Amino acid sequence: MAIAIGLVLLAGLAAWVLHLEGRRRVEWSERLARLEQRVSQQRSAIEQAEAARAAAEAALRASEERYTAALRGSQDGMWDWDLASGRVELSPRWKSMLGFDADEVPGDLQGWRSRVHPDDRAALDAALARLLPADGAPADTRFDCELRLLHKDGSVRWVLSRGVALRRAGGTPYRVIGQDTDVTQLRRVSQVLQAVADGTAGAVGEAFFPAMVRHFARALGLDCAFVAECADHPPTRVRTLAYWVDGTLADNFEFALAGTPCETVIREERATLHRSGLAQAFPREAGWESYLGLPIIASDGRMLGHLAFRHRAPLGDEVMVESVYRIFLARAAAELERLQALARLGEKVPGALAS
């Protein structure tokens, strides 16, 4: 009897153990399912983040490639710096801007930096450091620096240097590609405009003309500048309103147009440039090598006179500041018209101008 009771108790205990084990299995199964779901969600989030990162990197590479293609298609001087080797490829156009043949500038970082004006090398290094920071700081997306480059002939060319760093998938830069745009003439125009504008700001009437020729001659570095009005109509003669030569104002005078480069300016109403050989073409201009003349036209189209420059050496691009001339030729025309109007009204104007 006791044995039978024991067997029943063992059977019940076994059933109870089996029941607990089943419940544990269900709980573990449910827990495992939840864990698997969380893992799946995390995997999906990681995949989405990876896809977003890859898309961003692809977009960045595409942007860099478009920028690089734009650089390569430009007519400005291009440079390509390989960071691992230190080699800097300078395009033929870049070298020609500075007067060099293709094989005259070394293809390394030192060869490139040697053409940068010594006073601008610190600014170049600082701009490159912002593009390629060594301390983990945020990097600039573009390189942008205005600096001076040394021409082979010893002169200085101002350039706007722009570039971009090409980076690997992990963000490590491996190349910097850029271009240098020659802005020397733009700076020249700005400097001449500022100098003449400052020098003539307070001058009106007859006082304007001496101020104009003085500051034009100084800003352009020329030996002679004068402004003259037509003395008769049709014009065969002109008389100077201001004559600046060798650093000083000289007495005004009247002269015939025939046999001078001024004749073309006045009669054809157009700018005339003789870069060199002036005295050979016009014997009356003995002692002068070059000439630039610009017509002064009234608001109603009448020829009023001209602004002219002479120099004892050949003229280069330093005189090509057309936008500045247009501003001050218009101002000169307005002053001449005003003085002539006063003269016609019979007002007593010192040194009254004939109409």
Rank of each mutant, 00 (worst) to 15 (best):
R237A: 11
E254A: 12
R214P: 04
G6F: 14
R338Q: 13
G86P: 02
D108G: 06
L186A: 15
R61F: 06
A169L: 09
G293T: 06
G86H: 03
A201M: 11
T68S: 12
T272Y: 13
A62F: 04
D232W: 02
A52D: 10
H274I: 11
V192P: 03
V349Y: 04
A228H: 08
L220D: 02
V176Q: 00
S91F: 00
R162T: 09
V164R: 10
L342H: 11
D300C: 05
A137V: 00
L222P: 00
H117F: 11
A58I: 04
A286H: 14
L98T: 04
R302S: 14
L336Q: 03
R187I: 07
M320F: 10
Q42H: 13
F328K: 01
A51F: 06
R43P: 12
H215A: 03
Q280F: 05
D76F: 15
G73P: 01
H306T: 13
L186G: 15
L315D: 04
T248P: 09
L241V: 06
L128E: 09
F208M: 04
E30V: 15
R239H: 13
T172C: 06
D103W: 08
R187A: 03
E47P: 00
T272G: 04
V159H: 05
V88C: 09
R130Q: 12
L249F: 09
Y174V: 00
F328G: 01
L292D: 02
A69L: 13
R267C: 07
L241I: 08
G170Y: 00
D144N: 15
A45R: 14
R214V: 07
G259C: 06
R53W: 07
C262P: 06
S155R: 15
G77Q: 03
H215R: 06
S276Y: 10
R148H: 06
A62E: 15
L20I: 12
S161Y: 02
A332F: 08
R93S: 13
E254K: 12
F216I: 01
A333I: 11
A169R: 14
S290F: 01
G293K: 00
T240C: 07
F226M: 06
A207M: 05
E146Q: 12
R312Y: 11
R310G: 07
R53T: 07
R275Q: 09
D82A: 10
D80I: 02
I5M: 10
W94A: 09
P235T: 12
R284D: 10
A165Y: 00
L342Q: 12
I297H: 05
A126K: 10
A197P: 00
P118E: 03
V213L: 01
L109T: 08
V196K: 00
A279R: 02
G351C: 07
E347L: 15
R302G: 09
R310L: 12
A308G: 13
H215N: 14
A127G: 02
C145R: 04
V26H: 14
G199Q: 02
C145G: 04
I266Q: 05
L292N: 02
A165F: 01
Q41E: 15
A343D: 08
L166C: 01
E27C: 03
L60A: 13
M303L: 14
Q185W: 02
Q340H: 14
E104W: 01
A59T: 11
R310I: 03
S155Q: 14
G346A: 04
A33N: 06
Q185G: 12
A15V: 11
D232R: 10
A195I: 02
A126H: 08
I3A: 12
D153W: 01
W79C: 04
D80N: 08
G287V: 05
A59W: 04
R187E: 11
